[in-house]
């Protein structure tokens, strides 16, 4: 293991992480719900449940975040080196996987870990492990 100190950004990572935590805290304290993005978005497919309003509001907030940021500061670089075909396949797997697995990095990784939910701890270990292995295979086995 070789730590890339030149790209290590501990303070902004910690501050941003706490921001995410504050958002999750507000949401559970005020709305009584888990701030799990895949669950919030996935629920939009179930119109008959009649709880579209807050879901749309939460998603609108997320989408508007970079626009609000831009009013005060230049956006940081979002670097994507993945081709469109691979992006589409990845998006498809993330969509199906998070719904079958009942959550993603936010619902399981942040909220579930905060609640010490055994299901979320297992889910987080599995998707983190799968992420590590996938990057290893793409970059160091099949890639150059």
């Amino acid at each position: 293991m070789l730590i890339d100190w030149s790209h290590f950004t501990p303070w902004s990572a910690l501050a941003g992480g706490m921001g995410i935590g504050i958002a999750a805290a507000l949401f559970v304290l005020l709305n009584g719900r888990i701030a799990g993005i895949s669950g919030i978005v996935g629920g939009l497919f179930r119109v008959q449940t009649g709880d579209m309003g807050w879901r749309i509001a939460f998603v609108a907030g997320l989408v508007a975040a970079p626009l609000l940021w831009q009013l005060f500061h230049r956006l940081p670089t979002f670097q994507i080196d993945t081709g469109y075909g691979m992006l589409a396949l990845a998006g498809l797997m993330v969509g199906i996987g998070t719904r079958y697995g009942s959550g993603c990095t936010s619902g399981h990784g942040v909220c579930g870990m905060s609640r010490l939910s055994p299901r979320s701890i297992v889910a987080t270990l599995v998707f983190m492990g799968a992420g590590f292995v996938t990057v290893y295979l793409i970059r160091h086995v099949f890639g150059g």
Partner: peptide
């Protein structure tokens, strides 16, 4: 739970994008 999270992790590792950042 396990297979879903596995598929999600593979997709995450392919692009480096999970649902929240995707919307951002």
């Amino acid at each position: 739970l396990v297979l879903g999270s596995l598929a999600f992790g593979i997709g995450w590792g392919m692009a480096g994008i999970c649902p929240g950042p995707a919307l951002v």
